[in-house]
């Protein structure tokens, strides 16, 4: 069975390393915050200017002056800190953020990512994505394996305008966990009930199968 968005987020949460700073993008990445393992301490950064972002507020406690990069109302945790956008991107470009989780429309086997523009359609902009992908130490992409037309989002080369060059380290989809290596995509985990063959057929690029191929534990 293909994973739900929440299950993709849950699998990515297993990648969180103790005592690190993490930026979560809009969409599936935001859900990762709901699945942080109990023995892991991380601080979430939102590029509009907060480190130590907490959960969404209870009804009636919303503060228009406290939002995340998706413009959602949030709360702050004890020890949280606020800053301006230049300081925020100093944290990002300056490699102070350890992990960045982003959504994507396409990822290429060399780690190129496309997630900001579909030519001919309304272009909303890249927001902070181009800064995030050029600089974070570790970039994990959270996305469905194929698009709505059933086409693979994992490709030899991106066909959409790219957001960053050779930056993605790992992809977690509804079907698999795939690492980007110098030899391209490497399948390391399959979703429960999903066959290797199904993943190969859903991937529009060469796929190396890891010797220790596992089934995801969620």
């Amino acid at each position: 069975m293909a994973l739900t968005k929440n299950e993709i987020a849950k699998r990515i949460a297993q990648e969180l390393v103790n005592n690190t700073y993490v930026n979560l993008g809009i969409g599936i990445p935001t859900l990762v915050a709901n699945h942080v393992p109990l023995d892991i301490n991380v601080e979430f950064q939102s590029e509009n200017g907060i480190l130590g972002m907490g959960p969404f507020p209870k009804e009636g406690k919303e503060d228009a002056d406290l939002i995340n990069a998706g413009k959602q109302t949030i709360t702050s945790l004890p020890g949280a800190v606020l800053f301006d956008s230049a300081v925020s991107f100093s944290m990002i470009r300056g490699n102070h953020i350890h992990l960045s989780v982003l959504g994507a429309m396409q990822v290429a086997e060399n780690g190129d990512i496309a997630n900001w523009k579909i030519p001919g359609k309304m272009v909303k902009g890249m927001g902070g994505a181009m800064d995030l992908v050029t600089s974070s130490n570790n970039i994990i992409v959270a996305m469905t394996h194929t698009n709505r037309l059933g086409q693979s989002k994992l490709l030899k080369r991106c066909t959409l305008p790219i957001t960053g060059v050779s930056c993605v380290k790992k992809i977690v989809t509804d079907l698999a966990v795939i690492e980007i290596t110098s030899k391209g995509f490497k399948l390391t985990e399959v979703a429960p009930g999903v066959s290797e063959e199904e993943i190969i057929n859903s991937t529009d690029a060469e796929l190396t199968i890891d010797k220790n191929l596992k089934t995801m534990v969620l």
Binding site: E47, D84, S85, A86, S88, F89, I92, R93, D112, M126, G127, G128, A129, M130, D131, T134, S135, P161, I162, T163, G164, V165
Partner: peptide
């Protein structure tokens, strides 16, 4: 890019005419 926008404003107010950033390289 958002970080570039922030830094371009900061630079404009700080007497820095231009700067190099990795954001957007190859795009």
């Amino acid at each position: 890019p958002q970080g570039t926008l922030a830094e371009r404003c900061r630079a404009g107010g700080s007497g820095i005419p231009a700067f190099f950033t990795p954001a957007g390289y190859g795009t």
